[in-house]
Write a protein that binds this DNA or RNA. Structure first.
Lengths: 370, 370
DNA sequence: TAGGGTGTTGTGACCGGTCCCATCCGAGAA
DNA sequence: TTCTCGGATGGGACCGGTCACAACACCCTA
């Protein structure tokens, strides 16, 4: 009935497979359970034994097998990031921050795309992305990401990276964000102080409601008692920025534009140029994000820098927290947004700004060298 | 001696764990081995049994547990991508292509960064990235990636994405690349045909030796019998492009520059502008890669488009091949490089190009609408 | 009718960890 | 001295798949 019993190959030194805890145990003269306790930093192991086991682990080059751990129901040790994109700067930088943080604590990082082109497939993709003992970070800046987030069952340890929520609208799941309200307000006030009668806004898509950067813009205009145009629906790309910018370029009253991101700003600048308007002499443009290219735009872009990498790190830190993992990440400051002044902003044309304002702005925005 | 035997909870319908092959087997009235054969598309299963099992799988929503498969020594079902970067366009686009391909065949995709800042850590990072039953794609466009590639033991199924190898220098491991020799040559010839006495080159780093795009440039100049300057060491970023461009801007003989990538081109354009030179009236600039921003540069950038996404897909297809996985990807055409003509190129200044050349170039490069 | 191949199915062991439980031992309290 | 208790350690079962092997048809040939 029973076939020939194969001799297990687990005697140390004579095996091409990587060593297991049983190999370590044998070499250290303890049981495999003790080895397990040592690698999981269980308190009830004597110092002598622990030291001996650790030495053997180092000597044999033992590394715990992730698959076996996951199978046996150990603590989570991998994250899958769900997002609609890897080429947009914010997404890529967030990914980089997450990766770095996971590497520090020995987690694996996976990525799965939820495609904007096929929203109907998203629930299925999300379901496949969820694995037993797995965790998730969902980049929910945009609609596909938010859709994906909704598909994730509550029992899956998940952190969402989201647009900053509006006042009183608490996110339903553990989330991280950068609140750019203050920076958007500051940027708008900066433009108003330079004599621009109003500031137009080319937003990123407002989803599900409005963005904090738009609220900051609104607040600045409201405080200044300045009329406000109703912003368009919004977009993400330079192409959209070009089209929207072309519309604004036809309006001679437009002298200052706050763009929802740097991609839009780049498109808007191109549209202005093609319409024969000079930036910043005729129209001032401010971007959002500070992508690495921004300082080489023509003109170098004044923009609000956002630390997406730090945001990614924060997301993973929160994930460790909520999945009560034994590992932790050193606490870090909340990622900030702040205005970077370059050369795409100038005093309003025609209406000569007062000397104090002009010199003040000069003093306030010493263009940094590249 | 033996404690109380816990009744296994694996009876279908009464269990909060996701169903296992044993649950499926019980529900379908077959053995678990038969279920295993069905999900692995083993030929020796009768059609009747197969249909019954598949129906049960669908009904129970069974999905094979990846960790268990990996542990039991099944075929590979995940790739880890090793690369120095996620924010550079070429890297991010390649990642996107790999992800899409893995998703199609049910593979997982991980990412691990090998940081340029700390080359000494690379061997360690690579070692940790290798898992039993795991596979690797190494993005070895740059030095950290190439370093990482060298650390990978030969027995690990690995595909490298590399700079196209020079003639006769066969890569030692399975590799994919885009051969941009012809496109670089074409771009250079295009500039020469517009009357530029020579074409300068701002290369990406040549590592380990020279790049195919540089060889294409050299070949065009050699064929035209034109003098050639010795190119600089090379860099990746706009910052480097700005610095190198500033040097070229001082030389009045420089009227045409072929840049190793679009980032460099953007920096070079900025440097020319800051030096008071007009692009393309005084200096023509050609880039490489065609990043999404390129068409919105000032002026819109003439560049060589490379299909990194297709390259990523090809890398994964080759990985499936060499790891003799049961899954395959539909064959696709080799990713190409081709010249995209926009507005950063003009006939050489001063030396008036002949009418036929000028009109020819106009006819050849109808600037695409944005 | 016996013998041999082929196709189909089932059983046992195993991958490398983790959990639960049992055992052993020494110290302090009754 | 005996009992209790907690720290240190070990053994067995198990996670959900895969592999190797055995068993049982069934058909074809000799």
């Amino acid at each position: 009935m029973t076939g020939p019993i194969r001799e297990p190959l687990n005697f140390a030194g004579n095996c091409d497979r990587s060593p297991s805890i049983r190999d370590v145990a044998r070499a250290a003269g303890v049981s495999y359970q003790t080895v397990s306790r040592v690698i999981n930093e269980h308190p009830n192991v004597s110092d002598t034994t622990r030291a001996a086991v650790l030495a053997t682990i180092a000597q044999l080059g033992f590394r715990p097998n992730r698959a076996a751990r996951a199978l046996a129901g150990g603590p989570a040790q991998a994250v899958t990031v769900l997002g609609s994109n890897t080429t947009l700067y914010g997404f890529a930088a967030a990914l980089e921050g997450i990766e770095e943080a996971t590497r520090e604590v020995g987690f694996g990082m996976g990525f799965r795309a939820v495609e904007a082109r096929s929203p109907a497939d998203i629930p299925d993709v999300v379901e496949r992305a969820i694995e037993p003992a797995g965790t998730l970070i969902v980049i929910a800046f945009d609609k596909p990401g938010a859709l994906a987030l909704e598909c994730v069952p509550l029992e899956v340890p998940t952190v969402a990276m989201i647009q900053a929520p509006t006042e009183g609208a608490e996110p339903t799941r553990p989330s991280v964000w950068i609140d750019e309200f203050a920076a958007a307000k500051e940027a708008t006030e900066y433009l108003l102080a330079l004599g621009h009668p109003t500031v137009h806004h080319l937003p990123i898509p407002s989803w599900p409601r409005t963005t904090r950067r738009m609220e900051g813009w609104r607040a600045a205009l409201a405080e200044a008692g300045v009329r406000m145009h109703e912003p368009l629906q919004g977009g993400w790309t330079s192409t959209w920025g070009y089209e929207a910018g072309a519309v604004l370029a036809r309006d001679p009253n437009v002298t200052a534009v706050l763009c929802g991101n740097d991609d839009i700003a780049l498109g808007a600048i191109a549209a202005m140029r093609d319409a024969g308007k000079r930036v910043p002499a005729d129209v001032s443009i401010v971007g959002f994000d500070d992508i690495p290219y921004a300082q080489f735009f023509a003109p170098p872009l004044t923009t609000v820098r956002q630390d997406f990498k730090a945001l990614g790190r924060a997301a993973f830190a929160k994930l460790l927290e909520i999945s009560n993992s034994p590992r932790t990440l050193p606490p870090a400051a909340a990622p900030q947004a702040r205005l970077i002044m370059r050369h795409s902003v100038a005093p309003a044309p025609q209406v000569a700004p007062s000397a104090s304002e002009a010199s003040g702005s000069e003093a306030r925005s010493p263009p940094p060298g590249r």
